[in-house]
Simulated scan of single mutants.
Amino acid sequence: MTTLDHSPDQARSGWWPFAAAAFAFLVAMMGTTLPTPIYALYEQQFHLSQFMITVIYAVYAAGVIGALLLTGTWSDQIGRKPLLFAGLALSLVSGICFALSGGLWGILLARVLSGLSAGLFASTATAAVMDLVPEGQERAGILTATGVNMGGLGLGPLVAGAVVQYLPDPMLTPYLVHIALVILAGLAFLTVPETVARADHPDLAPQRPTLPSEVAGVFLPAALVAIAGFMVTGFYSAVVPSFLADPMGYHSHFLVGFVAGFLFLASTAGQILADTLPGRSHLKLGCVVLTLGVLVIAAGLWAETLWGLLPGTLIAGLGHGLAFRSGLGAVGSAAPEARRGSTIALYFTISYLAISVPVVLVGLAGLLWALKPVSIAFALLSALLSLLALWRIRGRD
Protein backbone atom coordinates (compact mmCIF):
# COMPACT_ATOMS: atom_id res chain seq x y z
CA MET A 1 0.00 0.00 0.00
CA THR A 2 1.36 3.43 -0.87
CA THR A 3 1.90 6.14 1.70
CA LEU A 4 0.17 9.48 2.03
CA ASP A 5 2.11 12.72 1.78
CA HIS A 6 0.81 13.58 5.24
CA SER A 7 -0.08 11.64 8.35
CA PRO A 8 -3.68 10.96 9.44
CA ASP A 9 -3.07 13.29 12.38
CA GLN A 10 -2.14 16.09 9.98
CA ALA A 11 -5.35 15.49 8.01
CA ARG A 12 -7.27 15.91 11.28
CA SER A 13 -5.32 18.88 12.58
CA GLY A 14 -7.84 21.63 11.80
CA TRP A 15 -11.48 22.45 11.20
CA TRP A 16 -11.23 23.65 7.58
CA PRO A 17 -10.87 20.23 5.85
CA PHE A 18 -13.67 18.88 8.04
CA ALA A 19 -15.93 21.87 7.23
CA ALA A 20 -15.16 21.74 3.49
CA ALA A 21 -16.02 18.02 3.32
CA ALA A 22 -19.23 18.59 5.28
CA PHE A 23 -20.24 21.48 2.98
CA ALA A 24 -19.70 19.33 -0.12
CA PHE A 25 -21.85 16.61 1.48
CA LEU A 26 -24.59 19.15 2.27
CA VAL A 27 -24.65 20.56 -1.27
CA ALA A 28 -24.69 17.13 -2.92
CA MET A 29 -27.64 15.98 -0.81
CA MET A 30 -29.53 19.23 -1.47
CA GLY A 31 -29.53 18.37 -5.16
CA THR A 32 -31.25 15.04 -4.59
CA THR A 33 -34.44 16.59 -3.13
CA LEU A 34 -34.39 19.84 -5.10
CA PRO A 35 -37.03 18.64 -7.64
CA THR A 36 -39.65 17.80 -4.96
CA PRO A 37 -41.71 21.03 -5.26
CA ILE A 38 -41.15 21.06 -9.04
CA TYR A 39 -42.87 17.71 -9.61
CA ALA A 40 -46.27 19.42 -9.86
CA LEU A 41 -44.94 21.58 -12.71
CA TYR A 42 -43.59 18.48 -14.46
CA GLU A 43 -47.01 16.82 -14.09
CA GLN A 44 -48.69 19.79 -15.76
CA GLN A 45 -46.04 20.51 -18.38
CA PHE A 46 -45.46 16.93 -19.53
CA HIS A 47 -48.85 15.38 -18.55
CA LEU A 48 -47.37 12.88 -16.10
CA SER A 49 -49.40 10.66 -13.77
CA GLN A 50 -48.80 10.21 -10.03
CA PHE A 51 -47.46 6.73 -10.77
CA MET A 52 -44.91 8.17 -13.19
CA ILE A 53 -43.83 10.66 -10.52
CA THR A 54 -43.11 7.75 -8.17
CA VAL A 55 -41.15 6.07 -10.98
CA ILE A 56 -39.10 9.24 -11.47
CA TYR A 57 -38.36 9.22 -7.76
CA ALA A 58 -37.54 5.49 -7.75
CA VAL A 59 -35.00 5.67 -10.58
CA TYR A 60 -33.09 8.11 -8.39
CA ALA A 61 -33.00 5.51 -5.64
CA ALA A 62 -31.95 2.88 -8.16
CA GLY A 63 -28.99 5.10 -9.04
CA VAL A 64 -28.10 5.41 -5.36
CA ILE A 65 -28.23 1.67 -4.79
CA GLY A 66 -26.28 0.95 -7.98
CA ALA A 67 -23.50 3.32 -6.91
CA LEU A 68 -23.41 1.86 -3.41
CA LEU A 69 -23.19 -1.72 -4.66
CA LEU A 70 -20.62 -0.89 -7.33
CA THR A 71 -18.38 1.51 -5.40
CA GLY A 72 -19.15 0.78 -1.74
CA THR A 73 -15.70 -0.73 -1.13
CA TRP A 74 -13.74 1.61 -3.41
CA SER A 75 -13.08 4.46 -0.98
CA ASP A 76 -11.33 2.06 1.40
CA GLN A 77 -8.91 1.19 -1.44
CA ILE A 78 -8.39 4.26 -3.66
CA GLY A 79 -9.24 7.01 -1.20
CA ARG A 80 -12.21 9.24 -0.44
CA LYS A 81 -11.45 12.22 -2.70
CA PRO A 82 -11.68 10.58 -6.16
CA LEU A 83 -15.17 9.27 -5.41
CA LEU A 84 -16.38 12.52 -3.88
CA PHE A 85 -15.12 14.59 -6.82
CA ALA A 86 -16.93 12.15 -9.12
CA GLY A 87 -20.07 12.62 -7.00
CA LEU A 88 -19.86 16.41 -7.33
CA ALA A 89 -19.35 16.08 -11.09
CA LEU A 90 -22.44 13.85 -11.38
CA SER A 91 -24.44 16.33 -9.30
CA LEU A 92 -23.34 19.13 -11.62
CA VAL A 93 -24.28 17.20 -14.78
CA SER A 94 -27.60 16.20 -13.21
CA GLY A 95 -28.44 19.86 -12.59
CA ILE A 96 -27.57 20.73 -16.18
CA CYS A 97 -29.79 17.90 -17.46
CA PHE A 98 -32.68 19.09 -15.31
CA ALA A 99 -32.21 22.67 -16.49
CA LEU A 100 -32.22 21.63 -20.15
CA SER A 101 -34.83 18.89 -19.85
CA GLY A 102 -37.64 18.97 -22.37
CA GLY A 103 -39.61 15.95 -21.23
CA LEU A 104 -39.81 12.70 -19.31
CA TRP A 105 -36.61 11.08 -20.59
CA GLY A 106 -34.49 14.09 -19.70
CA ILE A 107 -35.93 14.09 -16.19
CA LEU A 108 -35.29 10.37 -15.80
CA LEU A 109 -31.67 10.77 -16.92
CA ALA A 110 -31.16 13.67 -14.50
CA ARG A 111 -32.63 11.64 -11.63
CA VAL A 112 -30.41 8.64 -12.33
CA LEU A 113 -27.34 10.90 -12.35
CA SER A 114 -28.53 12.51 -9.12
CA GLY A 115 -28.92 9.07 -7.58
CA LEU A 116 -25.43 8.02 -8.64
CA SER A 117 -24.07 11.19 -7.03
CA ALA A 118 -25.96 10.52 -3.80
CA GLY A 119 -24.75 6.91 -3.78
CA LEU A 120 -21.14 8.00 -4.04
CA PHE A 121 -21.63 10.53 -1.25
CA ALA A 122 -23.81 8.50 1.12
CA SER A 123 -21.12 6.14 2.39
CA THR A 124 -17.92 7.81 1.20
CA ALA A 125 -18.68 11.31 2.51
CA THR A 126 -19.86 9.91 5.82
CA ALA A 127 -16.55 8.07 6.21
CA ALA A 128 -14.58 11.12 5.00
CA VAL A 129 -16.22 13.49 7.49
CA MET A 130 -15.54 11.00 10.29
CA ASP A 131 -11.92 10.70 9.10
CA LEU A 132 -11.38 14.47 9.03
CA VAL A 133 -12.95 15.47 12.33
CA PRO A 134 -10.31 17.23 14.48
CA GLU A 135 -8.60 15.09 17.10
CA GLY A 136 -10.63 14.82 20.27
CA GLN A 137 -13.89 15.87 18.55
CA GLU A 138 -15.00 12.43 17.34
CA ARG A 139 -18.56 12.92 18.64
CA ALA A 140 -18.87 15.92 16.33
CA GLY A 141 -17.86 13.75 13.38
CA ILE A 142 -20.82 11.36 13.34
CA LEU A 143 -23.25 14.14 14.34
CA THR A 144 -22.05 16.33 11.48
CA ALA A 145 -22.03 13.49 8.97
CA THR A 146 -25.62 12.50 9.67
CA GLY A 147 -26.70 16.12 10.21
CA VAL A 148 -25.49 17.47 6.87
CA ASN A 149 -26.95 14.42 5.14
CA MET A 150 -30.45 15.06 6.48
CA GLY A 151 -29.99 18.83 6.55
CA GLY A 152 -29.10 18.85 2.86
CA LEU A 153 -32.13 16.71 2.07
CA GLY A 154 -34.27 19.21 3.98
CA LEU A 155 -32.77 22.35 2.46
CA GLY A 156 -33.26 21.03 -1.09
CA PRO A 157 -37.07 21.29 -1.21
CA LEU A 158 -37.12 24.38 1.01
CA VAL A 159 -34.80 26.34 -1.28
CA ALA A 160 -36.46 25.04 -4.44
CA GLY A 161 -39.95 25.77 -3.11
CA ALA A 162 -39.03 29.37 -2.35
CA VAL A 163 -37.31 29.84 -5.72
CA VAL A 164 -40.22 28.29 -7.65
CA GLN A 165 -42.78 30.37 -5.77
CA TYR A 166 -41.08 33.75 -5.89
CA LEU A 167 -38.51 33.85 -8.74
CA PRO A 168 -38.91 33.63 -12.52
CA ASP A 169 -38.28 30.51 -14.63
CA PRO A 170 -39.34 28.01 -11.92
CA MET A 171 -38.17 24.97 -13.93
CA LEU A 172 -34.73 26.49 -14.50
CA THR A 173 -33.71 28.86 -11.70
CA PRO A 174 -33.54 26.29 -8.83
CA TYR A 175 -31.04 24.22 -10.79
CA LEU A 176 -28.90 27.24 -11.63
CA VAL A 177 -28.70 28.05 -7.92
CA HIS A 178 -27.62 24.51 -7.13
CA ILE A 179 -25.08 24.37 -9.97
CA ALA A 180 -23.39 27.46 -8.46
CA LEU A 181 -23.28 25.78 -5.04
CA VAL A 182 -21.78 22.60 -6.51
CA ILE A 183 -18.99 24.60 -8.18
CA LEU A 184 -18.29 26.40 -4.89
CA ALA A 185 -18.21 23.09 -3.01
CA GLY A 186 -15.81 21.59 -5.55
CA LEU A 187 -13.41 24.53 -5.21
CA ALA A 188 -13.47 24.21 -1.41
CA PHE A 189 -12.94 20.45 -1.57
CA LEU A 190 -9.75 20.90 -3.59
CA THR A 191 -8.06 21.95 -0.34
CA VAL A 192 -9.09 18.82 1.59
CA PRO A 193 -6.31 16.24 2.17
CA GLU A 194 -6.79 12.56 1.38
CA THR A 195 -7.19 10.37 4.47
CA VAL A 196 -6.88 6.90 2.96
CA ALA A 197 -3.73 5.48 1.38
CA ARG A 198 -4.31 3.99 -2.07
CA ALA A 199 -3.81 0.24 -2.33
CA ASP A 200 -1.04 -0.86 -4.70
CA HIS A 201 -3.46 -3.21 -6.46
CA PRO A 202 -7.01 -2.08 -5.68
CA ASP A 203 -9.80 -4.54 -6.44
CA LEU A 204 -12.55 -2.43 -8.03
CA ALA A 205 -14.69 -5.29 -9.24
CA PRO A 206 -18.31 -5.04 -8.06
CA GLN A 207 -18.57 -6.66 -4.66
CA ARG A 208 -21.53 -7.49 -2.53
CA PRO A 209 -21.22 -5.50 0.70
CA THR A 210 -20.65 -7.90 3.56
CA LEU A 211 -21.30 -7.47 7.23
CA PRO A 212 -18.31 -7.84 9.55
CA SER A 213 -19.08 -10.16 12.45
CA GLU A 214 -18.29 -7.37 14.93
CA VAL A 215 -21.23 -5.34 13.59
CA ALA A 216 -23.92 -8.02 13.37
CA GLY A 217 -25.35 -7.43 16.84
CA VAL A 218 -26.06 -3.74 16.27
CA PHE A 219 -26.87 -3.89 12.56
CA LEU A 220 -30.27 -5.62 12.55
CA PRO A 221 -32.18 -3.23 14.84
CA ALA A 222 -30.48 -0.26 13.19
CA ALA A 223 -31.52 -1.54 9.76
CA LEU A 224 -35.12 -2.21 10.80
CA VAL A 225 -35.71 1.29 12.11
CA ALA A 226 -33.88 2.72 9.09
CA ILE A 227 -36.36 0.91 6.84
CA ALA A 228 -39.31 2.32 8.77
CA GLY A 229 -37.91 5.86 8.82
CA PHE A 230 -36.74 6.01 5.23
CA MET A 231 -40.09 4.66 4.03
CA VAL A 232 -41.56 7.86 5.49
CA THR A 233 -38.93 10.11 3.85
CA GLY A 234 -39.59 8.51 0.47
CA PHE A 235 -43.32 9.01 0.96
CA TYR A 236 -42.82 12.69 1.76
CA SER A 237 -40.64 13.28 -1.27
CA ALA A 238 -42.71 11.40 -3.86
CA VAL A 239 -46.33 11.22 -2.64
CA VAL A 240 -47.06 13.99 -0.12
CA PRO A 241 -46.78 16.79 -2.75
CA SER A 242 -49.67 15.19 -4.67
CA PHE A 243 -51.66 14.55 -1.47
CA LEU A 244 -51.35 18.21 -0.49
CA ALA A 245 -52.87 19.20 -3.83
CA ASP A 246 -55.56 16.52 -3.93
CA PRO A 247 -57.42 15.85 -1.67
CA MET A 248 -56.13 18.62 0.64
CA GLY A 249 -56.40 21.42 -1.92
CA TYR A 250 -53.06 23.17 -1.31
CA HIS A 251 -51.21 24.31 -4.45
CA SER A 252 -48.40 26.51 -3.06
CA HIS A 253 -44.99 25.31 -4.26
CA PHE A 254 -43.39 26.88 -1.20
CA LEU A 255 -45.74 24.93 1.08
CA VAL A 256 -44.89 21.67 -0.70
CA GLY A 257 -41.19 22.39 -0.29
CA PHE A 258 -41.69 23.39 3.35
CA VAL A 259 -43.61 20.24 4.33
CA ALA A 260 -41.17 17.92 2.56
CA GLY A 261 -38.13 19.76 3.91
CA PHE A 262 -39.61 20.04 7.42
CA LEU A 263 -39.40 16.26 7.90
CA PHE A 264 -35.69 16.19 7.06
CA LEU A 265 -34.90 19.28 9.15
CA ALA A 266 -36.78 17.78 12.09
CA SER A 267 -34.63 14.69 11.58
CA THR A 268 -31.53 16.89 11.76
CA ALA A 269 -32.82 18.34 15.05
CA GLY A 270 -33.39 14.80 16.31
CA GLN A 271 -29.77 13.96 15.59
CA ILE A 272 -28.60 16.99 17.55
CA LEU A 273 -30.91 15.96 20.40
CA ALA A 274 -29.49 12.44 20.32
CA ASP A 275 -26.05 13.80 21.15
CA THR A 276 -27.31 14.97 24.55
CA LEU A 277 -28.95 11.69 25.61
CA PRO A 278 -27.45 8.63 27.31
CA GLY A 279 -25.83 6.40 24.70
CA ARG A 280 -27.98 3.29 24.95
CA SER A 281 -31.31 5.12 24.81
CA HIS A 282 -31.02 6.65 21.33
CA LEU A 283 -32.22 3.83 19.11
CA LYS A 284 -34.97 2.70 21.45
CA LEU A 285 -36.29 6.22 21.98
CA GLY A 286 -36.07 6.88 18.23
CA CYS A 287 -38.31 3.89 17.54
CA VAL A 288 -40.91 5.08 20.05
CA VAL A 289 -40.95 8.68 18.79
CA LEU A 290 -40.98 7.60 15.11
CA THR A 291 -43.93 5.26 15.74
CA LEU A 292 -45.88 8.01 17.50
CA GLY A 293 -45.15 10.51 14.74
CA VAL A 294 -46.19 8.16 11.94
CA LEU A 295 -49.47 7.42 13.74
CA VAL A 296 -50.13 11.18 14.00
CA ILE A 297 -49.33 11.52 10.28
CA ALA A 298 -51.85 8.76 9.54
CA ALA A 299 -54.48 10.65 11.54
CA GLY A 300 -53.68 13.86 9.65
CA LEU A 301 -53.99 12.07 6.32
CA TRP A 302 -57.33 10.58 7.38
CA ALA A 303 -58.65 14.00 8.51
CA GLU A 304 -57.15 15.73 5.42
CA THR A 305 -55.82 18.55 7.57
CA LEU A 306 -52.45 20.26 7.36
CA TRP A 307 -52.60 21.01 11.08
CA GLY A 308 -52.73 17.30 11.77
CA LEU A 309 -50.00 16.49 9.27
CA LEU A 310 -47.45 19.05 10.48
CA PRO A 311 -47.24 17.87 14.14
CA GLY A 312 -46.85 14.30 12.91
CA THR A 313 -44.12 15.44 10.53
CA LEU A 314 -42.23 17.09 13.40
CA ILE A 315 -42.54 14.08 15.72
CA ALA A 316 -41.68 11.53 13.03
CA GLY A 317 -38.72 13.61 11.89
CA LEU A 318 -37.36 13.83 15.44
CA GLY A 319 -37.75 10.07 15.84
CA HIS A 320 -36.08 9.41 12.51
CA GLY A 321 -33.16 11.63 13.49
CA LEU A 322 -32.72 9.97 16.86
CA ALA A 323 -32.77 6.50 15.34
CA PHE A 324 -30.72 7.29 12.23
CA ARG A 325 -27.95 9.04 14.15
CA SER A 326 -27.79 6.24 16.69
CA GLY A 327 -27.94 3.45 14.11
CA LEU A 328 -25.32 4.90 11.79
CA GLY A 329 -23.08 5.80 14.71
CA ALA A 330 -23.28 2.30 16.15
CA VAL A 331 -22.66 0.65 12.77
CA GLY A 332 -19.80 2.98 11.84
CA SER A 333 -18.12 2.70 15.25
CA ALA A 334 -18.42 -1.09 15.41
CA ALA A 335 -17.00 -1.63 11.90
CA PRO A 336 -13.24 -2.24 11.53
CA GLU A 337 -11.54 0.86 10.12
CA ALA A 338 -10.49 -0.94 6.94
CA ARG A 339 -14.11 -1.94 6.22
CA ARG A 340 -15.93 1.12 7.51
CA GLY A 341 -16.81 2.43 4.03
CA SER A 342 -18.24 -0.88 2.81
CA THR A 343 -20.20 -1.45 6.03
CA ILE A 344 -21.77 2.01 5.86
CA ALA A 345 -22.53 1.33 2.17
CA LEU A 346 -24.55 -1.74 3.18
CA TYR A 347 -26.49 0.31 5.74
CA PHE A 348 -27.31 2.97 3.15
CA THR A 349 -28.22 0.35 0.53
CA ILE A 350 -30.91 -0.99 2.84
CA SER A 351 -32.07 2.54 3.63
CA TYR A 352 -32.44 3.51 -0.03
CA LEU A 353 -34.26 0.29 -0.84
CA ALA A 354 -36.73 1.44 1.81
CA ILE A 355 -36.97 4.87 0.18
CA SER A 356 -37.71 3.52 -3.30
CA VAL A 357 -39.48 0.17 -3.42
CA PRO A 358 -42.39 0.96 -1.05
CA VAL A 359 -43.07 4.28 -2.81
CA VAL A 360 -43.35 2.55 -6.19
CA LEU A 361 -45.81 0.11 -4.60
CA VAL A 362 -47.81 3.11 -3.38
CA GLY A 363 -47.85 4.42 -6.96
CA LEU A 364 -49.06 1.07 -8.26
CA ALA A 365 -51.71 0.81 -5.56
CA GLY A 366 -52.84 4.32 -6.46
CA LEU A 367 -53.81 3.02 -9.90
CA LEU A 368 -56.34 0.72 -8.22
CA TRP A 369 -57.45 2.65 -5.13
CA ALA A 370 -57.70 6.26 -4.00
CA LEU A 371 -54.51 7.89 -2.75
CA LYS A 372 -55.92 8.55 0.73
CA PRO A 373 -56.48 4.95 1.93
CA VAL A 374 -53.25 3.83 0.26
CA SER A 375 -51.31 6.57 2.06
CA ILE A 376 -52.85 5.75 5.44
CA ALA A 377 -52.05 2.05 5.00
CA PHE A 378 -48.48 2.96 4.08
CA ALA A 379 -48.10 5.05 7.25
CA LEU A 380 -49.46 2.23 9.42
CA LEU A 381 -47.04 -0.25 7.85
CA SER A 382 -44.13 2.06 8.66
CA ALA A 383 -45.32 2.30 12.28
CA LEU A 384 -45.50 -1.50 12.47
CA LEU A 385 -41.91 -1.86 11.26
CA SER A 386 -40.74 0.68 13.81
CA LEU A 387 -42.43 -1.31 16.56
CA LEU A 388 -40.75 -4.45 15.24
CA ALA A 389 -37.38 -2.72 15.52
CA LEU A 390 -38.21 -1.71 19.11
CA TRP A 391 -39.11 -5.31 19.96
CA ARG A 392 -35.79 -6.48 18.48
CA ILE A 393 -33.82 -3.91 20.51
CA ARG A 394 -35.57 -4.90 23.72
CA GLY A 395 -34.85 -8.56 22.95
CA ARG A 396 -31.16 -7.79 22.46
CA ASP A 397 -31.00 -5.84 25.72
Rank of each mutant, 00 (worst) to 15 (best):
G327Y: 01
D131N: 12
R111T: 05
Q50V: 12
D246A: 15
M231V: 03
A238D: 01
L244H: 05
V357H: 00
A67C: 11
A238W: 01
A185P: 11
L285M: 14
L92Y: 09
L184M: 15
A61R: 01
T54F: 00
L367Y: 01
I96G: 04
L70W: 15
H178R: 07
K81F: 09
A199W: 03
F258I: 12
N149M: 12
L292W: 06
S242E: 01
P241H: 09
Q271N: 14
G332H: 01
A99L: 11
P209F: 08
H251W: 07
L158N: 08
S101A: 15
G87F: 05
L68T: 07
V133C: 05
V64F: 06
A128F: 09
L328F: 08
S101G: 13
T2D: 14
S49T: 15
P35V: 11
P336M: 09
A67I: 08
L143V: 15
D5V: 04
E43S: 12
T73F: 01
V359C: 02
A122D: 06
P247Y: 02
M248W: 08
Y352R: 05
W15D: 00
P8V: 07
L109R: 03
L109F: 09
G147H: 03
A61T: 13
D275Q: 14
P373G: 08
A162D: 03
L120A: 10
I96C: 04
T2A: 15
G308W: 11
G147I: 06
S213Y: 10
E304D: 12
I107H: 02
A145K: 04
S333M: 10
D131H: 04
L211W: 14
G317P: 08
N149K: 01
G66N: 05
L34F: 15
A127P: 02
L384Q: 01
H178E: 06
T32P: 01
G317H: 12
I376D: 04
M1K: 11
G257W: 02
V177N: 03
I344Q: 02
L371C: 05
A379Y: 05
I142C: 00
M150I: 07
R139C: 00
A303E: 14
S267F: 10
S252W: 11
I107A: 02
T33I: 00
H47D: 13
